[in-house]
């Protein structure tokens, strides 16, 4: 029996929620970063499942754009994180809070 498209959407939504939750709760910067990527991939899944449901190739093409952007983000994000890491041994998001008030 074929799995209705909406299930995929639900899975994607769950994945997205998971990613968001990950960014919110995990203190380690690297894990936050990974959850961010997870959210982007969840969106890819949504695109693909919609493309399949709508039977339109546009959605799938968009996935490639998302991938490209995600890659660019990774490069820059890791660059920043490494720069921070070089000053301090362990890096948690809460340490980085001298800019406040």
């Amino acid at each position: 029996m074929t799995i209705p498209g909406s299930w995929y959407l639900v899975v994607a939504a769950l994945l997205f929620g998971l990613g968001a939750f990950g960014v919110l709760t995990r203190r380690n910067v690297i894990v936050m970063f990974m959850s961010l990527e997870l959210m982007l991939n969840a969106v890819n899944l949504t695109f693909v499942s919609y493309a399949r449901m709508l039977n339109d190739v546009g959605g799938q093409v968009d996935v490639f754009f998302v991938l490209v952007v995600a890659a660019a983000e990774v490069v820059v994000g890791l660059g920043i994180i490494v720069a921070i890491f070089r000053q301090r041994a362990t890096v948690t998001a809460d340490d980085i809070s001298s800019l406040k008030g």
Partner: peptide, 11 residues
């Protein structure tokens, strides 16, 4: 400070 700003802006 700049590093922290960049990190926050990025995330």
């Amino acid at each position: 400070l700049a590093r922290e700003a960049a990190f926050k802006y990025f995330i």
